[in-house]
């Protein structure tokens, strides 16, 4: 009799535990769902709205101001036959991102052509549907590619740029990369603030929007862009982008995939390098290998905001890693590079 009366409360408490666990799990799941929904809305807004916005990138105690314009316009399809062209229309995105301080650095985009105007190079265009500026391009694309390596957490509401904002954290699933915090406008779904944060919560770099205007019609600048002739698109052959190299990187954080490998000369130093680029959807990691005059050089590193530059020389071979990753990850990558003696000439 006694044992029975004892068992009952135990069973009950188990049940209670289970139920409460279910509730908390569902609450977390709902949070994640909400976060994902917000990010999807951001992606949609970045592609579909006509917006005129300014932001500053704050890093190294410096602020870089940018002006960013985006709009969508309809143009008749050009590659159809004439009879169809009258009715068929295609939506084309127009985009301008301009650095406002120092020498001109403008990025122009019309549909699938992106032009870079920079002091180091003659203006050039590439065939791409995304601009690579300070804001990761993935936020305007399919964000579900991040789900394998990051959790999305909806944290709370706050006021940013005088608007009601929802804070979403993109939390890495391992210790090998940084987290991203996004403050999204509740009205438009657009970004109001973005911060890159270490696992311990240290702020490395942030982007604060200072002005946001959403309009029905295209702004004047974008109308001009529409009729501007962009620089010629440079052709990048697939072969150039997949050169077989005499070395390999044996360790990378999970989810990083090779984007390209090639041999090229660095623009500023004219140094010939062998190069591999990796990406996990959000972060790019470059690995450089080149012969060096020094026999040995211990690991050196510097950081530019969240971007780490690390290099070392072992047996006259210099290995460098660049990317928005923690020091420990970069060191591990550098040490994992191995050389294939058969392929070394």
């Amino acid at each position: 009799m006694k044992s029975l009366s004892l068992k009952l409360p135990i069973k009950l408490s188990f049940l209670l535990c289970f139920v409460s666990a279910c509730f908390s799990f569902s609450a977390i799941a709902a949070d994640a769902e909400q976060a994902k929904f917000s990010l999807e809305r951001l992606s949609q807004s970045l592609r579909q709205l006509n917006f005129n916005t300014s932001f500053v990138v704050v890093k190294n105690n410096q602020a870089e101001p940018y002006h960013w314009l985006h709009g969508v316009t309809e143009v008749p399809l050009s590659n159809r036959t004439d009879t169809q062209a009258d009715t068929a229309k295609q939506e084309v995105e127009l985009e301008i991102l301009a650095l406002l301080n120092g020498p001109r650095r403008d990025i122009l985009r019309v549909g699938n052509t992106v032009s870079y105007i920079e002091p180091e190079y003659a203006p050039y265009s590439i065939a791409s549907a995304q601009i690579s500026g300070p804001i990761p391009a993935v936020f305007g694309r399919d964000i579900s590619v991040l789900e394998n390596n990051y959790h999305f957490v909806s944290v709370g509401k706050s006021r940013v740029l005088g608007r009601a904002a929802q804070l979403i954290r993109i939390v890495p699933q391992d210790a090998h990369r940084y987290g991203y915090w996004l403050w999204l406008d509740q009205d438009s779904g657009l970004m109001l603030k973005l911060a890159v944060i270490t696992r311990k919560g240290k702020l490395l770099e942030q982007i604060q929007f200072t002005h946001l205007e959403i309009t029905e019609s295209l702004s004047e600048n974008l109308k001009q862009l529409q009729v501007t002739e962009l620089p010629k698109v440079i052709e990048l052959s697939a072969k150039e982008n997949n050169t077989e190299l005499a070395w390999q990187v044996n360790w990378l954080p999970d989810g990083f995939e090779e984007v390209k490998s090639d041999r090229h000369r660095m623009n500023s130093s004219k140094q010939a390098v062998e190069f591999m680029l990796f990406n996990d959807g959000l972060v790019d990691i470059s690995v450089y290998v080149n012969p060096s005059q020094d026999k040995q050089r211990a690991v050196e590193y510097a950081s530019d905001g969240a971007t780490l530059v690390l290099n070392q020389v072992v047996n006259n071979i210099e290995v460098s890693v660049v990317g928005k990753i923690p020091l420990s990850s970069a060191e591990k990558i550098v040490n994992s590079v191995s050389f294939n003696p058969n392929k070394l000439n």
């Binding site: 590439i126 995304q130 690579s132 990048l236 500023s268 680029l277 990406n279 470059s286 450089y288 660049v322």
Partner: peptide, 12 residues
Amino acid sequence: DHQQQVKLSAAK
């Protein structure tokens, strides 16, 4: 160079 390569990789 890293920034440049990232830009070019978008085309790829």
